[in-house]
Design a protein around this nucleic acid. Structure first.
Length: 117
DNA sequence: GGTGTGACCAGCT
DNA sequence: AAGCTGGCCACAC
């Protein structure tokens, strides 16, 4: 762990990890939703990039529960196996068809809403 | 310390 | 209607 962010604020990556870890089992969210929750709507790419660095995190990050706004498993190629992400989601109750979550709207978990209750 | 990059999103053509 | 472009901002070299 670098101490570059030894200040009170955690790095952007850490914030993303915290939010992703709060995603309930069987639920999914989007990069944009996380970015919006963190304050920057347009920084959805940062969230995806944070996921790329999630391997650096000591604690496991359920990155498979984060998809794009269309419910498509855009980041599946970054997992160990191309089908690992899909298998994990299916094991949690998600219905995936052609790399897309069919019941995405039901499983969608918006941190800006859920965490503000 | 400038430049490039990235698992996205929304708007324009 | 579908494809392309820009924007956005934190991090690594």
């Amino acid at each position: 762990m670098q101490q570059s962010y030894s200040r009170e604020s955690l790095s952007f990556f850490e914030k993303v990890y915290e939010v992703v870890k709060l995603i309930p089992l069987g639920r999914v969210t989007t990069y944009g939703a996380i970015a919006a929750y963190l304050g920057s709507r347009g920084s959805a790419r940062m969230v995806g990039w944070a996921m790329n660095a999630s391997h650096n995190s000591s604690q496991p990050v359920p990155a498979h529960r984060v998809v794009n706004r269309n419910g498509i498993l855009t980041g599946k190629h970054h997992f160990e196996g191309y089908e690992l992400m899909q298998q994990l989601l299916e094991s949690e109750g998600a219905l995936i068809e052609d790399d897309r979550i069919t019941n995405f709207r039901e499983l969608f978990w918006d941190p800006a809403i859920e965490l503000s209750l």
